[in-house]
Nucleic acid binder design. Structure first.
Lengths: 207, 207
DNA sequence: TTGAAATAGTTGCAATTGCAACAGAAAGTT
DNA sequence: AACTTTCTGTTGCAATTGCAACTATTTCAA
């Protein structure tokens, strides 16, 4: 964690090519419309990646926190829908072009030497997170999705008890299931003695 | 595509830290058991990432092709299940440790200068692919999963007609749905005039 | 070439899920 | 403090899905 913090400090001591911008809550940070190899790093704050589909429905595709790396460079080019990153709190965000990473501004610029290393580490962290999400989403029932996600949170916290990093409404979005069906399944899991739940604190009761 | 090929050629002219190994079909390439920051790059051949769950059921978690980057560095540490990469054809694979990328073997080693750039590009490509998969998996019905996946394949090929890169059995795995239910839905989509299908060639008939 | 294995295709039925439509609680705003 | 919005919790019902159990076809290997 402090490791990532150091990375970001290094990045911030950067050269002119990298811009840091501030956003207030509800401002648009960036859109993923055309290919331009944009990479963004969240320094402070939180944001949502939103899709408006053809019917105008809003859909939260991803959520970003401090030290998260995002941007259109990570997304397939896509017709039919527009992706927008909206600040959900006041934010500081770094912007860079993929190419900037390797075009050094001057020989042995300390910034550039650490930048590529930092970006790779953040990208790997991102990849680990994506694979976790794929594992959860690829379960076929709501019950399995919940238990898989809970088991990951539990091993992250080294504890059978943990607090969900979401509201229950957002958890349903994250798992891509109907909220009411998820609530029903949470109730069933509690009734059958697999978990206990109070608000968004969960305790695993098995094994 | 030839871009990626160049990257890999650069990597192959590498220094002693990076090993290239050959595997025959059905051999185990690596396992994701403990954290050791291993990164692998598929030079030639194909492989499956397999999970054996507690009941001993085999589950194809991911499929790797030429220029794909994989390894335990991309995966969350996980109790309960063991991930194994098995060659599905004869393979050449590069192995490196994450740390090797930045510990230079000698000053200005040409290999090390291109390595980090190459790895980042491969990792970004991987990330784009993962996000595409998340988008598909997060659709709630089999119909939407199929149409989303087809639309992505269609825009990749710049054509309403394309060949699935899978058998239909593997497609069902990839979409994480029951195979027979998927077949039923494919039949419905054809009956309702959304697609036409012959073997694993699909043609989109709408818009 | 012939048998075995993998893949494709089909269907009935039961279980799960999404949807719609609520009411109450909590949080945020003016 | 009053109002609005978001979140939680619940239920009936219809639609979708998974499961089981087949047969037919294709692919592969001995």
């Amino acid at each position: 964690m402090s490791d990532t913090f150091n990375l970001i400090n290094n990045i911030q001591n950067g050269c002119s090519r990298v811009q840091k911008k501030h956003f207030v809550k509800n401002e648009t940070i960036t859109t993923y419309i055309q290919k331009r190899n944009q990479i963004c790093i969240m320094i402070v704050g939180t944001a949502d990646l939103i899709r408006y589909d053809l019917n105008g429905n809003k859909d939260i595709v991803d959520k970003f926190n401090e030290t998260d790396i995002f941007g259109e460079a990570f997304y397939p080019v896509h017709t039919n829908n527009e992706l927008t990153v909206i600040a959900t709190s006041n934010c500081d965000v770094l912007f860079l072009q993929h190419d900037d990473i390797y075009k050094k501004c001057k020989a042995n610029c300390k910034f550039h030497n650490t930048l590529s290393s930092s970006i790779l580490q953040l990208t790997l962290k991102n990849s680990v997170h994506q694979n976790m999400r794929i594992e959860v989403l690829s379960k076929r029932t709501i019950r399995e999705k919940l238990l898989t996600y809970f088991s990951i949170l539990s091993s992250k916290d080294f504890s059978k008890s943990f607090t969900l990093p979401f509201t229950l409404t957002n958890l349903a979005d994250y798992l891509s299931v109907d909220r009411s069906a998820m609530m029903r399944e949470l109730k069933n899991l509690a009734a059958e003695g697999f978990i206990s739940k109070s608000g968004n604190k969960i305790k695993l009761l098995y094994k």
